[in-house]
Computed example of a mutant assay.
Amino acid sequence: MESEFYIKSFCHIKDNKVSLNGTVIYNDNDTLDFLDFIKAAYRSFDTKYPKFFKMDGLSKLAFLASDLILREEKLNLEDENNIAIVFSNKSSSLDTDEKHQESIQNKDNYYPSPAVFVYTLPNICIGEISIKYKLHSENSFFIFDSFNAEYLSDYTNSLLSANKANEALCGWVEFDGVAYDAFLYLVSRKGTTIHTKQNIVNLYNT
C-alpha cells in the first residue's frame, strides 16, 4: 500500500558540502576541520541563533540542516508548530561523552564542565531545534548500526497517520568527532515524492 505522505524537502551535509533539495548551496574545499567548516557554513547562510556557537558538534550539524529546511516553511514563531522530529544515528553523543569523561579525569579541574555535560544525550540537538522553531510535538532519537530508511519510513508514517503531528522532520545525523553526515528531510501530506524506504534511500544517495 502506497504511503499518503510525501517528502517535501531535504538537506544533506557531508564532505564539506551543504546541499538543499539536491542542489549544492555551500562548498568549502579549503576547510578540513568540521568545526571550522560548520561555523563558516552557518555564517554564510546568515543564520541568527547565537547559541549555535555553544553547541556540541552533533547539535551544530543537526541544527544547521534543520534550519535550512524549516526556514523555507516560513513558520510563525509566535505560535507552536506541530512538527515532529525523528532523528537517528550510530554514535549517539559519543564525541561529547568522551569530552565529558576527559573533563572529569582532568586533575586540574575541580568540577567537570557543565557546558559539555549538557550535551551528553543525543536528543539534546532536538531541543535546540525545537526551541528556535517552537516545535511542540512528538520527538525521538534512535540509534542504529547504519542508516535505517525502512524504520524511519514506517515509524514516521505511523506517527502522522495517528495525527500526532502535522509534519515530521526526519533523518540521520552522525558525528563522531571527525566524520560527519547529516541527511534530514521534511515529511508532509503534500508533495511529489512519496515517503517510502526506496525514495528515502534514493535521496540519501543523491
Rank of each mutant, 00 (worst) to 15 (best):
N199Y: 11
I7P: 11
Y26R: 08
L160R: 10
D46Q: 10
I25C: 08
V187Y: 15
F183D: 09
Y42F: 09
K8E: 13
K8W: 04
E174H: 14
I69V: 05
K17S: 07
D181G: 14
I104Q: 06
A40Y: 00
I104H: 01
E174F: 05
D33K: 13
L68R: 01
N81S: 10
N202S: 12
F147W: 09
H100G: 10
N21L: 02
N106L: 05
Y185F: 15
L186T: 03
S44G: 01
N82P: 00
P50K: 15
T120A: 12
Y42G: 08
I143L: 13
F10N: 04
L68V: 06
I104K: 07
E102D: 12
S113A: 10
N16H: 09
T193V: 15
Y111V: 00
P114C: 07
K164E: 05
D154F: 04
N21T: 02
K134H: 06
Y49R: 13
I69L: 10
S140L: 03
Y42M: 11
F53Y: 12
S3V: 07
V86A: 08
L184I: 11
T96M: 07
T120S: 12
S158D: 11
K74Q: 08
D95V: 09
H136A: 01
K74G: 04
P50E: 15
K39G: 07
F175M: 10
Q198H: 15
E78V: 06
V18Y: 12
Y180K: 06
D181Y: 02
F141M: 06
N16S: 09
F183E: 11
G177S: 06
K54D: 13
I129D: 07
S113N: 10
N163T: 05
V116N: 06
F5N: 11
K39C: 10
F141P: 00
S137K: 07
T47H: 05
E167R: 14
S9D: 06
Y151P: 00
V116F: 01
T206A: 15
N106H: 01
L186K: 06
A65R: 05
I104R: 04
L160F: 01
S146G: 00
C11M: 12
N205I: 07
V18Q: 13
A179M: 12
T156P: 04
F34T: 15
V173W: 03
S93A: 10
C11L: 12
I38N: 04
D56G: 06
L135C: 02
T206S: 14
S44V: 02
L121V: 14
D97V: 01
Y204T: 09
G191P: 01
N27P: 00
A182N: 12
D95G: 02
I83N: 13
E150S: 15
K54Y: 05
I194F: 14
W172D: 07
Y42V: 07
Y110R: 02
S66M: 13
A115I: 05
K164G: 00
E4K: 14
V187C: 11
N21Q: 03
K99I: 02
S188C: 06
K197F: 05
P122H: 03
I104N: 05
F141L: 06
L169Q: 05
H136T: 01
N148A: 08
T31P: 05
N81R: 09
I13H: 04
V24T: 07
R43V: 04
Y49L: 07
S66K: 13
K99N: 03
T47G: 10
S140E: 02
R43S: 04
E174Y: 13
Y49E: 12
